[in-house]
Design a binder for these strands. Structure first.
Length: 643
RNA sequence: GCCAGCGUAGCUCAAUCGGCAGAGCAGCGGUUUUGUAAACCGCAGGUUAUCGGUUCGAGUCCGAUCGCUGGCUCCA
């Protein structure tokens, strides 16, 4: 469908709406905005220099179009809230969200009284009513002072604050306001032609949010919602949210008996049940094997340390809010460790190192404890005690790029094994940072070189690095398309200097090493919690807590079933047996709900033919299979870590 | 930490206006011996998160504390 229109001389000065209507009359009803030289503008704007314009259609697949809809819907929400809750309602900001898994927009209000989720349907109803009135969105450009007066009149103090801020920017003389019906807002736009396009939306939740995201400011009431042009797309979206809820690791973690927490032990402290522990242990074994193959050396460091070490590292100064109070041991202050680096550095410093020794790569499953505010704790994903898959590489400047490349390769291999796609960001020097320009130059270049050399797509996050060095950050994309904080590779220009980590070079002089912090999984708590959701609890056979269960059809075949179980166990598989006096149907149901990959059903026929009737979680019934053959099949599946 | 909401048996949930705390599953004891997603009967299970208050009477109303949930902030 051609939506590009060339602009002729006699179109000059006409509004976009006029031009579109005369050129694309059959589409006119679906056009909501236009792109002019890549810029989105309202239909009411007029064309001057542009040679051609592109009509933007009401279409959920067009990101721009969807963003406009959601933004306009947030204005509609504000209008409804203002009408229902009175003129004292102050509205602040209400953007569209395009990358959130759940939400499509929000609006933050300063309300005279709190509101609860139960009131959302009432607000939705009002929104629907207002939408049906097809109120026109009118763009108004006003000089700064005049715009402020407009909001002054209606008591919208937050808007005045925003205008003042905009006015500080260079070359700003006017701001744009949008009016639809009785509602006026400060807004860059563009917006829909009228509210009639808003047909498929839903308000989803109410939450608190600080004004400007700053905890020192007032707590506002945020209402989240989502909107689409097409009702089916809204329905699909809501179903997707429901799917995600069913995968919630807190729900499945309980159902599959993976972990729990206890009020008595304390919030944010994970109890790994046997099922969770075997998953974790299997991952740890895989991780250690993979690291050992790639030249890492396994180390262990203590869980508490004299706090002097954190004075030297600077953590006590910069991170003390995250650290637990000191405990007095023989008159000295000790701390529970919040990170592993100082320990690894001390192992490095335990000997004089030669350039011949480098690179040195230490890895550890290091359990650390950090104070997290209560409100941020969340299942296994956000906790107070967690085990990082931590490693530190000590190398020379010349070795840095190669080390980064090996790390990126390791990350890629491990993430793909678990079935994750991922996105990459390169985070550069932030404003507040230590180190020389030159150091930041070569360290950032080393990271960039690797990404370029390997032809990886990445985004640059300007100023997104840590104060002590640049980093590569990966975001995992799970089977529902949600993004998770993933691996990180950070160059550290700070700690080697603070701890005087040096080696003797070929020139017989002392040089400071370059240090790289890196984690592939992040923390085992978060990673396993994420995996539960990624797999919806159905772990691939190599990770499944129970890989197969033997189900005798009656008591008469319990002995034969035990024989099979023993044989499989002898071959190293995790196999259970269900000798309860339930019928097979019940046994199958139980194993199905436990998401066991294989069921081996045995009765008269199987006993006679020395087989088992195999039922696979993935492929259904596979028929009668000899035990040896089954062992071959499952071994291959486990060895290849197939998904 | 902040805002809002929630907390009843191991789990999932009932209990009208403030009026005797109840069911299913799981557990335990029997009966049954079973062929591809739930056999039957019975038993037991509770200081309704904790502490205090209002009331003749509180799971229900009020306050505090603890925990959890959705967010903000932060981050592995």
């Amino acid at each position: 469908m051609n939506t590009i229109i060339s602009i002729g001389e006699n179109d000059r000065g006409k509004t976009i709406r006029e031009i579109i209507e005369s050129n694309l009359s059959e589409l006119a009803k679906r056009i909501i905005a236009a792109r002019v030289d890549g810029q989105l503008i309202d239909l009411g704007a007029s064309v001057n220099e542009a040679r051609q314009i592109e009509a933007v259609l009401a279409d959920d697949d067009d990101r721009d179009a969807l963003e406009i809809l959601r933004h306009s819907t947030s204005h509609l929400l504000a209008q409804a809230v203002r009408q229902l809750y009175g003129d004292e309602v102050k509205y602040t900001i209400g953007p569209a969200l395009m990358d959130d898994f759940k939400y499509g927009f929000y609006y933050d209000f300063d309300l005279p009284r709190p509101i609860s989720t139960e009131e959302l349907p009432k607000i939705e109803k009002r929104m629907t009513k207002l939408a049906q009135q097809k109120q026109t969105f009118e763009r108004i450009e006003l000089p700064i002072e005049q715009a402020k007066e407009e909001f002054e009149k209606i008591g919208q103090t937050y808007k005045i604050e925003l205008i003042d801020e905009i006015a500080k920017e260079e070359n700003v003389q006017t701001v744009s306001l949008y009016r639809h019906g009785d509602f006026l807002d400060l807004c860059r736009g563009p917006h829909l032609p009228h509210t009639g396009f808003i047909k498929a939306f839903k308000l989803l939740s109410v939450a608190g949010a600080y004004w400007r995201g700053d905890a020192n400011n007032k707590m506002l009431t945020r209402i989240y919602g989502v909107a689409f042009y097409d009702k089916d797309n809204l329905k699909k979206h809501l179903e997707k949210i429901e799917q995600a809820q069913k995968r919630d690791h807190r729900l499945l973690g309980k159902q599959l008996d993976i972990y729990s927490t206890s009020e008595l032990i304390g919030p944010g402290l994970i109890l790994w049940h046997p099922n969770g522990a075997i998953i974790r242990h299997t991952i740890e074994r895989f991780w250690i094997d993979e690291h050992t193959k790639r030249g890492y050396q396994l180390v262990y460091t203590p869980h508490i340390a004299n706090e002097k070490i954190y004075q030297i590292s600077g953590h006590l100064e910069a991170y003390s809010e995250m650290m637990y109070s000191p405990m007095d041991i023989d008159g000295q202050n000790f701390r529970v460790k919040p990170m592993n680096c100082p320990g690894h550095i001390h192992i490095f410093n335990s000997q004089t190192r030669s350039y011949r020794d480098l690179p040195i790569r230490y890895c550890e499953f290091g359990t650390v404890y950090r104070y997290e505010p209560t409100g941020t704790l969340h299942g296994m994903l956000r906790v107070r005690g967690f085990t990082q898959d931590d490693a530190h590489i000590f190398c020379t400047v010349e070795q840095l790029a190669d080390e980064i490349e090996d790390t990126v390769d390791l990350i890629d291999y491990m993430l793909k094994t678990f079935g994750y796609e991922y996105k990459i960001a390169l985070a550069t020097r932030p404003e507040k940072s230590i180190g020389t320009d030159e150091e930041w130059q070569w360290s950032t270049e080393a990271l960039r070189t690797v990404l370029e050399r390997r032809n990886l797509e990445y985004e640059v996050e300007e100023g997104g690095g840590v104060f002590y060095g640049p980093k590569i950050q990966m975001m995992l994309v799970d089977s529902l398309g949600r993004e998770w904080q993933g691996p990180t590779v950070q160059v550290d220009l700070n700690l080697p200097r603070r701890f005087n980590c040096t080696y003797i070079g070929q020139d017989n002089a002392e040089h400071t090493v370059v240090m790289v912090h890196r984690a592939v999984l992040g923390s085992l708590e978060r990673f396993v919690g994420g995996l539960v959701e990624h797999y919806a609890g159905a772990f691939p056979t190599w990770l499944a807590p129970v890989q197969a269960v033997v189900l005798p059809v009656s008591e008469k075949f319990n002995d034969y079933a035990r024989k099979i179980q023993e044989k499989l166990k002898d071959n190293g598989f995790r196999v259970e047996i269900d000798c309860s006096d339930d019928k097979v149907g019940a046994k199958i149901r139980r194993a199905t709900m436990a998401k066991v990959p294989y069921m081996l059903i045995v009765g008269q026929q199987e006993q006679e033919s020395e087989t088992a009737s195999v039922r696979s979680r993935k492929q259904g019934q596979l028929g009668q299979i000899k035990t040896d053959e089954f062992i071959k099949k499952i071994s291959q599946e486990i060895d290849s870590k197939s998904l």
